[in-house]
Every structure is written in structure tokens, then in C-alpha cells.
Simulated assay, not measured.
Amino acid sequence: MAPLPPPDPLPEFVYKITPTAPPDPIPEQYPLSDLDRQDGFIPITADLFFKDFTSFYILKLRLANFDQSSVKWDEVDGTNGCPHLYGNFGVKDVVAAKEFRRAEGQSWKDVFEREKGWLE
């Protein structure tokens, strides 16, 4: 399958989900998880890979900090809006980190809808 072209305009931020609190301070080179090594960094994959979790952290990363040749785009809802970042990131790339929690019976989509401002 041929890679998709990036969206135009590019988003300012991309997001990294992690099941535990990020290291404090965030290191120069963030430790890669098994999923990262296998898939790249996937934004908003909560319902796919974190559906059984009731909480996790999201790191907000500035997309412009990455060499765009290391970013591959997947289709999401008919658009090429899902970046996979291949390579690593560190403290210079992280704009913010936040814990997200959901109540029993609540979907991650509902949680993200409430947090739209932070996720923009």
C-alpha cells in the first residue's frame, strides 16, 4: 500500500498515548514501548489498543519538530489524518502531558469530546 500524502494544512500537534505517567522530567530520548517499536506512535488509538484501560496519559507533541520523512499518514474517517511517527522524541518535542480517565460505561470518544480544547 502506498503511503498517503499528509493533510493540508498539517496539524500543529500529534499525540502519544502511554498507559503510565511519563517520566518526570521527560528525558532527551523517550523510552519506546513495544507498541512504538512495532507500529510507530499512534494518536488517539484508545478504542483500538487501550479499550480495557480506565486511565492513561497523552503526550502532546509538536509535529513541526519531526523530520516529515519519518511521518507516515493513515486514513481515518475518509481523511489522511492519522500520523505514525517513526523515530523517537524527547523533552524538546513534548508540549504538555495529561492524564485521561473514563468512568464505567463511558467511551474514550466521550472523554475526548469533553477535552476537545486540550486535544487541539
Rank of each mutant, 00 (worst) to 15 (best):
S33A: 13
L32F: 08
F49G: 00
R101G: 00
G117S: 15
P83L: 01
G40M: 05
L85I: 15
I17Q: 14
D39Y: 13
G90Y: 11
A21E: 15
D74E: 14
I17A: 14
R101C: 10
G78P: 00
V71T: 06
V14A: 11
I26K: 09
P19N: 09
Y30V: 02
L63H: 02
D52Q: 09
T20R: 13
K92Q: 15
A97F: 12
E28T: 13
F49L: 13
W118V: 06
A64K: 11
N80L: 03
W73K: 06
K51Y: 07
F100L: 04
N65K: 11
R37H: 13
P83C: 02
V111Y: 00
G105D: 05
K109S: 15
D39P: 00
P23A: 04
V76H: 11
V91L: 07
D77I: 07
P25W: 12
P25A: 10
T79A: 10
D77E: 13
E75H: 07
V76S: 10
V111I: 02
L4Q: 11
E120T: 10
L35G: 13
E28R: 12
F100T: 02
S70R: 14
V14G: 08
E115C: 08
T18R: 14
L4W: 07
R101P: 00
K16P: 00
F41W: 12
D67K: 06
M1F: 10
G40L: 10
P7D: 09
W118P: 03
L119D: 03
D34N: 11
R37N: 15
G81Q: 02
P11M: 10
I26Q: 05
V95P: 04
V111W: 01
F53P: 01
D67P: 05
Q29K: 10
W118G: 08
Q68I: 02
S107A: 05
D74M: 12
F100V: 02
L4T: 03
P43W: 01
P3T: 08
L32N: 08
K92V: 14
G117D: 15
L10D: 07
E75G: 11
P23H: 02
P31N: 06
P27M: 09
M1G: 14
S69N: 12
F50H: 11
Y30I: 04
R37V: 11
T45C: 14
E75W: 06
K51L: 03
P3C: 06
I26F: 03
V14P: 02
A96N: 12
F41Q: 09
I26G: 04
A96W: 03
L32H: 08
D93W: 04
F66T: 01
P23D: 04
P6T: 01
V76W: 12
P22Q: 07
R114T: 07
